[in-house]
Structures are given as structure tokens and as C-alpha cells.
Simulated assay, not measured.
Amino acid sequence: MREFVTEKVKQIKPSGIRKFFDVVSEMPDAISLGVGEPDFDTPWHIRDAGIKSLKAGKTFYTSNAGLMELREEICRYTEEKMHVSYDPKSEVFISVGGSEAIDIAFRATLDIGDEVIIPEPAFVSYVPCAQLAGAVPVTIPLKAENEFRLTPEELEAAITPKSKILLLSYPNNPTGAIMEKADLEALCPIIEKYDLLVVSDEIYSELSYKSAHVSIASLPGMRERTIVINGFSKAFAMTGWRLGYALAPAPVMKQMIKLHQFAIMSAPTTSQYAAISALKNGNPDVIEMRMAYDQRRRFLMHTLKRLEIPCFEPYGAFYIFPDISKFGMTSEEFATKLLQEEKVAVVPGSAFGACGEGFVRISYAYSIEELKAAFERIEKFIEKIR
């Protein structure tokens, strides 16, 4: 059967995140700080909306692009939060999670041999999605001393005649880095100069602790050359509902919906009704969860400082990305030994690109009590290897 599998798929590496998650799932008494999933239950008003739709028998396909009411709410929300206007009839579609929207965006816009510029460390799906679309991923190794922000000089140095897409992912997974308005403005002249399309993954847009999130699509000249990816998993604690969306100018969106039509048909109907309530009534829930994450973030930064483990201060998402290089192990060795000896799971930074070597990703989408228990074990481990 191996002969029937394409070489393109064979060459794609399994996710470095799932590897440790699978081990932890079979290890009694292990504490996992590896999964990027909110520990909050989906708020009840969102669950109730889904339940109500089931009781009303609303279990049929929606239009390919999704429920019009939900598309209208997404456009209202985007205008209110990010100050960008979209047409719900022609510039938005509802996807099965943000991951599907990223895959569709790449496949709709990339020809074989086109280059996708991907700043790293980055979420594990970007490079494989580019490869599956027949494109060539070109990675930019970002630096901790720059707080893992993409600089204009780094971007311009990566551009070639084949460059087509710049992938931006801020707030960032795995580093927790953000790009503020001035950082994004500095990139715009280069993006326009080389006529790049931007795919902006903003799934963590509600989890920004220093300043309000700024979408690059809101900057002059950027809306018409940007595909915005977002969703409900992180902000509204709806990971299992599998619902995301994309916003883009109508000519691109038309092709994205066509691909979605043939691959998926439509996103889950129950989830779409639940998401309407999330956007209409969920802002207090988002604020409450964001405050809890920020408390955990500050607790971990204080703890890392006490343990003398270097870590730049992340202001977004729910991850910290400490530097463990001084312990003389690769990130894979560090994470493996920590799991084996103290039963705490973190993710090696190398899972997110070569420049992630020497770091580990720690999620703080866990209670303060769990974080305290985990770091008691981490401290014990560090004392042994120092």
C-alpha cells in the first residue's frame, strides 16, 4: 500500500505537538502544559444556542458560505473590533476551524512553484499546507532579542521573484509575540513594493494583553491584498465546535468558497447557530477569560525569573517560550527528559521550525493550581540538571 501514497505527503513530518500529547494521554499523573486549548467550558449561552437549534430541528446543510446571520455578525464584529468593513454576501465564508480556512486560502491562491514567506517559529500547519498546495515555503528565522517580531529588513531579504504570499500570525503561536500597529505599518511599503498577498492568521486576536490587536487589513492599502483568518476556538473556548472563518476581497473569496464547496459543503450547522450567540453576547466571557490568562501569564513570568530561565515577555495568545539552551540539551531532549522524569509535558521549540531550537513552548491555558503544581516539578527537574 505504501506505493499508493504520494511522495509529497510522505515527506511531510507529523506534528511535533501531537507526539507529546499522545504520550501524556497514556501516562498516569502527568501534567500537560503542551496543548493550546482553553481550559474554560464553552459559555452556557453559546451551548444553549446550539442546543436550541437542535431542538428546533435545524440540522440541515446551510449555504456553502455559511448562515447569512452568522456572516452578518462576523462582519459587524470585524468592523467593531478591527475597523475593517466586509460584505457578508461576498467577502466571508464559514470554515471548519481556522485550519481549513488556511488550507483553502493557500490552495485558492498558490500555483506550483510559488513561494510562501513564513516567519518562524510558527504554527505547525503552515509549512505543510503550503507544500500540499504545490508551493515552496520560505521561512524567516525570527529572533528573541526582537521579541519575535518580523522586521522590514528580514522580510525584504526573504523576497524573490517567486514570492507570492506573506503569512502573518500575530498574536503568535508558539511564542506569544505580538505585532503592534507601528510594526505592521513598517511592513506595508515592502508588501506593496513586491505586490505580495498577505494571509493573516488572527485566531488569537482577542488575547492581547499590552494593547488592542491591530489587523494588518485595517491599514491603508492592505484590505485589498489581505486574507484574514479567524475563528471561535480560542476567544470563545469553542475548540470542539470546529468553526472558523475567512474574510477577503470578493474575487478571492469566490474561489475559496468553490474549494470549500467541493471539499466540505458547509460547516457544522449546530456550531454556526452557537457562534451567532458567541458574537452577539460573548464579549463579557472573552474579557473574563482574557483577564484569567493574563494573571497566569504574569505568574509564569515571575516564576521563570525566580528560576533564572530567560524568557522575553509575551503579550499575546496563551503561550510562553522560554530559552532552555543553557541546560546543554536540545529542546527535544529537554522536553523528553522532563516528561520522563517529572511527568510534565511541554513542546520542543524545534516543532515550530529550526529557529525554535533552544526553546520550549509552555501553554498557560490551565488553572493557576495546575501551573503551580507543574512548576514545582519543573523546578525540581532544573535543580537536577543545573
Results as ranks from 00 to 15, higher is better:
V9N: 14
I12L: 15
G16Q: 14
P28N: 00
G34Q: 14
E37T: 12
W44D: 14
H45D: 13
H45Q: 13
I46D: 12
G57Y: 14
K58H: 10
Y61P: 11
N64S: 15
N64M: 04
E69G: 02
R71W: 02
K81I: 00
S85W: 12
A105M: 02
G113M: 03
I118M: 07
P121L: 12
A130W: 07
A133V: 00
G134P: 03
I140H: 12
E145W: 10
L150D: 02
A158T: 10
T160W: 01
K162N: 15
K164Q: 12
Y170Q: 13
L196F: 09
L219N: 12
G221L: 11
R223I: 08
E224I: 05
S233V: 02
W241D: 15
A248G: 07
V252C: 07
I257A: 13
Q261K: 15
A267Y: 03
P268T: 07
S277E: 13
K280S: 05
H302V: 00
L307G: 07
I309P: 04
P310T: 03
F312W: 05
P314D: 00
A317S: 10
Y319C: 01
D323L: 10
S325H: 05
K326N: 11
G328P: 01
V347T: 15
S350C: 11
E357Q: 12
E370K: 08
E370I: 00
E379C: 01
K380S: 14
K384I: 05
K384H: 08
